[in-house]
Protein backbone atom coordinates (compact mmCIF):
# COMPACT_ATOMS: atom_id res chain seq x y z
CA UNK A 1 0.00 0.00 0.00
CA UNK A 2 2.65 2.42 1.11
CA UNK A 3 4.81 1.33 -1.84
CA UNK A 4 2.10 2.24 -4.34
CA UNK A 5 1.60 5.55 -2.57
CA UNK A 6 5.35 6.18 -2.81
CA UNK A 7 5.29 5.64 -6.57
CA UNK A 8 2.35 8.02 -6.91
CA UNK A 9 4.05 10.59 -4.70
CA UNK A 10 7.21 10.49 -6.83
CA UNK A 11 5.22 11.03 -10.03
CA UNK A 12 3.24 13.89 -8.53
CA UNK A 13 6.36 15.61 -7.18
CA UNK A 14 8.04 15.27 -10.57
CA UNK A 15 5.02 16.77 -12.30
CA UNK A 16 4.76 19.65 -9.86
CA UNK A 17 8.42 20.61 -9.66
CA UNK A 18 9.33 20.01 -13.30
CA UNK A 19 13.05 20.19 -12.52
CA UNK A 20 15.65 20.54 -15.25
CA UNK A 21 17.91 17.55 -15.68
CA UNK A 22 21.51 18.58 -14.93
CA UNK A 23 23.47 18.66 -18.18
CA UNK A 24 26.06 16.15 -17.01
CA UNK A 25 23.40 13.61 -16.07
CA UNK A 26 21.34 13.96 -19.21
CA UNK A 27 22.77 11.02 -21.17
CA UNK A 28 22.57 8.71 -18.13
CA UNK A 29 19.12 9.42 -16.75
CA UNK A 30 17.18 7.35 -19.30
CA UNK A 31 19.47 4.36 -18.77
CA UNK A 32 19.26 4.78 -15.01
CA UNK A 33 15.47 4.85 -15.15
CA UNK A 34 15.36 1.63 -17.15
CA UNK A 35 17.82 0.00 -14.76
CA UNK A 36 15.71 1.08 -11.78
CA UNK A 37 12.60 -0.32 -13.46
CA UNK A 38 14.45 -3.61 -13.82
CA UNK A 39 15.25 -3.58 -10.11
CA UNK A 40 11.63 -2.76 -9.25
CA UNK A 41 10.22 -5.60 -11.33
CA UNK A 42 12.84 -7.95 -9.89
CA UNK A 43 11.76 -6.92 -6.40
CA UNK A 44 8.10 -7.47 -7.20
CA UNK A 45 8.87 -10.90 -8.51
CA UNK A 46 10.89 -11.74 -5.41
CA UNK A 47 8.04 -10.50 -3.25
CA UNK A 48 5.56 -12.74 -5.00
CA UNK A 49 8.02 -15.61 -4.67
CA UNK A 50 8.11 -14.92 -0.97
CA UNK A 51 11.85 -14.22 -0.92
CA UNK A 52 11.68 -10.42 -0.85
CA UNK A 53 14.28 -8.73 1.29
CA UNK A 54 14.38 -4.95 1.54
CA UNK A 55 18.16 -4.84 1.92
CA UNK A 56 18.60 -6.83 -1.27
CA UNK A 57 16.14 -4.53 -2.99
CA UNK A 58 18.02 -1.39 -1.98
CA UNK A 59 21.39 -2.81 -2.93
CA UNK A 60 20.20 -4.19 -6.27
CA UNK A 61 18.42 -0.95 -7.04
CA UNK A 62 21.44 1.24 -6.40
CA UNK A 63 23.93 -1.10 -8.04
CA UNK A 64 21.72 -1.50 -11.10
CA UNK A 65 21.48 2.23 -11.57
CA UNK A 66 25.16 2.84 -10.92
CA UNK A 67 26.42 0.04 -13.16
CA UNK A 68 24.12 1.02 -15.99
CA UNK A 69 25.28 4.63 -15.75
CA UNK A 70 28.90 3.52 -15.45
CA UNK A 71 28.73 1.34 -18.54
CA UNK A 72 27.28 4.18 -20.55
CA UNK A 73 29.85 6.62 -19.17
CA UNK A 74 32.64 4.20 -20.07
CA UNK A 75 31.14 3.78 -23.53
CA UNK A 76 31.10 7.53 -23.99
CA UNK A 77 34.76 7.72 -23.06
CA UNK A 78 35.61 4.88 -25.45
CA UNK A 79 33.61 6.43 -28.24
CA UNK A 80 30.97 3.70 -28.38
CA UNK A 81 28.48 5.29 -26.00
CA UNK A 82 25.52 4.98 -28.34
CA UNK A 83 26.08 1.29 -28.99
CA UNK A 84 26.74 0.44 -25.35
CA UNK A 85 23.65 2.32 -24.25
CA UNK A 86 21.64 0.31 -26.76
CA UNK A 87 23.21 -2.89 -25.45
CA UNK A 88 22.36 -2.02 -21.85
CA UNK A 89 18.79 -1.18 -22.79
CA UNK A 90 18.44 -4.49 -24.63
CA UNK A 91 19.77 -6.53 -21.70
CA UNK A 92 17.62 -4.68 -19.18
CA UNK A 93 14.63 -5.04 -21.45
CA UNK A 94 15.09 -8.79 -21.65
CA UNK A 95 15.35 -9.00 -17.84
CA UNK A 96 12.25 -6.87 -17.40
CA UNK A 97 10.34 -9.11 -19.76
CA UNK A 98 11.36 -12.30 -17.96
CA UNK A 99 10.54 -10.76 -14.57
CA UNK A 100 7.16 -9.61 -15.79
CA UNK A 101 6.53 -13.09 -17.17
CA UNK A 102 7.18 -14.59 -13.71
CA UNK A 103 4.94 -11.97 -12.06
CA UNK A 104 2.23 -12.75 -14.55
CA UNK A 105 2.44 -16.45 -13.74
CA UNK A 106 2.05 -15.64 -10.07
CA UNK A 107 -0.86 -13.27 -10.42
CA UNK A 108 -2.85 -14.90 -13.19
CA UNK A 109 -1.49 -18.45 -13.04
CA UNK A 110 -0.90 -18.15 -16.77
Amino acid sequence: MIAALGLLLGIVVGLLLQPDVPLGLEPYLPIAVVAALDAVFGALRAFLDGIFDDKVFVVSFISNVLIAALIVYLGDKLGVGGQLATGVIVVLGIRIFSNVAAIRRHLFHA
Binding site: A3, G6, L7, I11, V40, F61
Partner: peptide, 13 residues
Protein backbone atom coordinates in the same frame (compact mmCIF):
# COMPACT_ATOMS: atom_id res chain seq x y z
CA UNK B 1 10.05 0.05 -1.43
CA UNK B 2 7.99 3.22 -1.23
CA UNK B 3 11.09 5.41 -1.16
CA UNK B 4 12.72 3.64 -4.08
CA UNK B 5 9.52 3.62 -6.10
CA UNK B 6 9.14 7.33 -5.44
CA UNK B 7 12.64 7.85 -6.82
CA UNK B 8 11.81 5.78 -9.92
CA UNK B 9 8.57 7.64 -10.48
CA UNK B 10 10.21 10.99 -10.02
CA UNK B 11 13.10 10.17 -12.32
CA UNK B 12 10.92 8.79 -15.08
CA UNK B 13 8.60 11.78 -15.00
Amino acid sequence: AAVLLAIVGFASV
